[in-house]
Design a protein around this nucleic acid. Sequence first.
DNA 1: TAGTGGTCTAGACCACTCC
DNA 2: GAGTGGTCTAGACCACTAA
Lengths: 236, 236
Amino acid sequence: MSQPLYQAVKQHLLDKINTGKLVPGDLIPSEAQLSRALGVSIGTVRKAIDILEQERKLYRHQGKGTYVSHVNFDNSLFRFFTYGDETGESARFHKETPERRRVDGEKWICKILQVPANTPLIYIERVGFDHQELPVLVEQCWWLAELVPGIENAEVHIPDLLYAVIEERFGVHVIRAEETLTADSATEYLSHKLLIEPGAPLVVLHRRTYSNNDRLIEYRITHGRADRFSYKTEIR
Amino acid sequence: MSQPLYQAVKQHLLDKINTGKLVPGDLIPSEAQLSRALGVSIGTVRKAIDILEQERKLYRHQGKGTYVSHVNFDNSLFRFFTYGDETGESARFHKETPERRRVDGEKWICKILQVPANTPLIYIERVGFDHQELPVLVEQCWWLAELVPGIENAEVHIPDLLYAVIEERFGVHVIRAEETLTADSATEYLSHKLLIEPGAPLVVLHRRTYSNNDRLIEYRITHGRADRFSYKTEIR
DNA sequence: TAGTGGTCTAGACCACTCC
DNA sequence: GAGTGGTCTAGACCACTAA
């Protein structure tokens, strides 16, 4: 055989997920059902699901079944960093949304989003505060306006999880994201927002967010105070 | 049973690795041998090895056998970052060692290394250059002098992989490391070394390196030019 | 009680490596 | 050709969940 059977089973499930036949939270067919339907042994189905579980695409619940994972996208920098100067304690945060408006996309952002210049966009700026109400991060997001019409209106409440609104109100599924992490110095603008000196070190996260069919729907830049974020890991 | 059999098999192998009965590069017993020796089926042995392979503790080579992984410790920042401004191309580097000397440990570093103040240490400073011979990172390492006696002498050649010398010449096994990643601004000293402006953004990696029995043997700080390092990832 | 995933077994055949 | 890991099968029994 050119391809292992378990790869075919894995691809069968991935296809169902990527085409929307299975959406996050869905129960997939049981291992026995898949085994019968695809004409392979249950061990082969298990191996395929093992891999998908390991890749976080699926999760199993004994006695209930196997489900399609929800993507846990938000908290941006917190995917990499834990708040707190090496102490590693998990802290509480909340976000506010001081700015949101419809804009005609400037050339540079339209190029990133792969749309013609001046395409209507929604600009959303959010600030994250720690438990002492000190600002520690600034998120700047650009969305394709046609996908999230009306989100720029102040009466639309934006919870801490921005993607929750996007999913529920606009039916736009966030499928995946690409992130690039680096560091930079605070601009005048950001230093004001974060109550730090201009030039102070920041950690920077660039994110491209994709919906179905690899459609690029958002570009986001998050700046966080370097003295408040650190990433800890172990190598063995 | 209180514990799955494959967990016991996994632990059996881990114990052999952590006690040094199996060292990196060693061939472990074959699946059939383990199966017989431990009195479990070969499928159970496979499951244990599957997990250890997934955790990068072991690697398999069809037709040859299963080996204990070498830790790939070096290149510090490159574990996180790829050189190149988002282009993601892998580049060539080399390191030089402009400074190495025996020092009496200052209070702060001895505290980190968990030894009494003024304990003899070896300070090693290394600079990484890109293909254009531009300095892009500075490594500052403090080793316990008793473990690596004589490494401070200039005639001891230090290759790009510092740990290779440590292993071969001094028989010190590097078992694991803890790393903390953050950002900072260039000090006057570092800005000279890296040919950048003081205050320019840097990515910073703190590393604690451990040998057998969780013995802390090195503390290392690596500073890299933020404009030359970025970390790219995908979330799904 | 029926159905699910979790663990475990005992084989089979194949592809690869080394002698 | 002997030994290794890679794939695949067809069962068994268990623990958990829901009705």
